[in-house]
Amino acid sequence: MRRKITAGLILRKDGRYQRNELIGDKRRTFTAKDPAKVWADIQKAQEEYEEQERQRIITRDSGPLFSVVSDEYQAIVEKMKEGTRRSYMPNIRRAREALGEYRMREIQPYMIAEFLRSPVFEGCSASTVSNQKTVINNIYQFWIDSPKWRGDCNPAVQTRMPRGLPRSKRPPPTEEQVQIVKDHYLDPDALLPVAYLCTGERRGEMLGIQLKDIDFKKRVIHIYKSVEHINNAPHMRDYTKTPAGIRKVPLLSMLAEALEPIRHLPPDTYIIGLDTKPITLKKYETMWQRFWRKYGVGEEVVHTKRVYRRGRSEVVKYSTWRVPVCGHQFRHEYVCMLAMAGVPEEIAIQLVGHANAKMIHEVYMALKPQMLEDARKRLDALL
């Protein structure tokens, strides 16, 4: 015998049908004027609960989606230093596009390895691919450390880097470029390259040096802060790129002589820009180009752009100056100078602000002609 559709429902005084139903471990009330809708709502709620339970079991067994974890990790990266954000964000985006649809425990080392060998990284250097692998490792470590998820595996640790990737080192400046700085170190326009040559600082740390940070009597420069540019605007940070970046470096005689004309300025004066506030990125680039252009290094590049004048569109020409050497290359030169001067490695890594010697060996150290010549003389003497 067919059961009435109203069976099991309560007809309320307002003419609506009602039923209390246990969905999972919660009792819920369903009401509607149409009894069929009450039963439909109950069935829908039951199906939703069963789907939630199924997803909960999947999540428990396979973990959350990689895209969900990477989104939360990205929120943390967005609060980091500008340089870190600029480096990490593209890597997070690429990892999410490649692995986002998988759950954390579903991703295996071979999947990460295939991603690192994919056309996305065609022509990229080993350092670029290594940075991508580091970001995937960081996302997994974030999942493991999170009290919310308490992850328990990290396939990035088991993933090997692809073989045969090009390994490029940024070369130190040429002997001719170094000689130009040495020959003109008393030129006021040369203060920026001279400071690079004599300290080996990173750009941000260089632009953060003030006169008060220099002990002219003890011949020491205190490095403990840096300037970070967001777009063009400078922002002073009370930290360096790494904890090892907080250090003392010797004040070399060449730089001391170059600084002599400005020693009378207020202690808060930044040695680059000669103002009590750090310079903008645009001004930094102008200062760098001005020195090298002055001594015939670089080339003029002509550009065109469209402008509107008096209601008409016109194409105008303008020039910029392309310089074939950057300030960071003098950091490489500084490491070579430390090696040529016989400074012990454990001292050298502290002077350049690295936690270990790996960066000196793999990145900064270059075999200069003078080093080869010194080696030849020593070997000849030994023989």
Rank of each mutant, 00 (worst) to 15 (best):
M1R: 15
K4W: 13
I5M: 11
K13E: 12
Y17S: 04
D25W: 08
K26C: 10
T29Q: 14
T31R: 15
A32K: 10
A36T: 11
V38Q: 06
Q46F: 05
S62A: 06
F66M: 04
S67R: 14
K79D: 03
M80N: 12
M80W: 02
T84C: 05
R86E: 11
Y88D: 08
P90Q: 00
N91C: 14
R94D: 06
G100C: 07
Y102M: 08
M104I: 08
R105N: 14
I112S: 04
I112Q: 02
I112K: 05
F115Q: 00
C124G: 06
C124Q: 09
T128F: 12
V129I: 13
T134H: 09
I136G: 00
G151W: 13
D152P: 01
C153Q: 12
T159I: 08
T159F: 08
P162Y: 11
R163Y: 06
R170Y: 02
P173A: 15
P188A: 03
L192H: 10
L207A: 12
L211P: 11
I214A: 00
V220F: 06
H222R: 13
Y224N: 14
Y239N: 02
P243E: 10
I246G: 07
L251G: 08
E257S: 05
A258P: 10
R263Y: 09
T276V: 06
K283Q: 14
Y284F: 14
V302H: 03
R306M: 13
R309K: 15
R310M: 07
R310Q: 09
V315F: 01
C326T: 15
Q329E: 14
M337W: 13
L338N: 02
M340C: 01
A341M: 13
H354M: 00
K358P: 01
E373M: 06
D374P: 00
D374I: 00
A375T: 09
A375S: 12
D380F: 13
D380T: 07
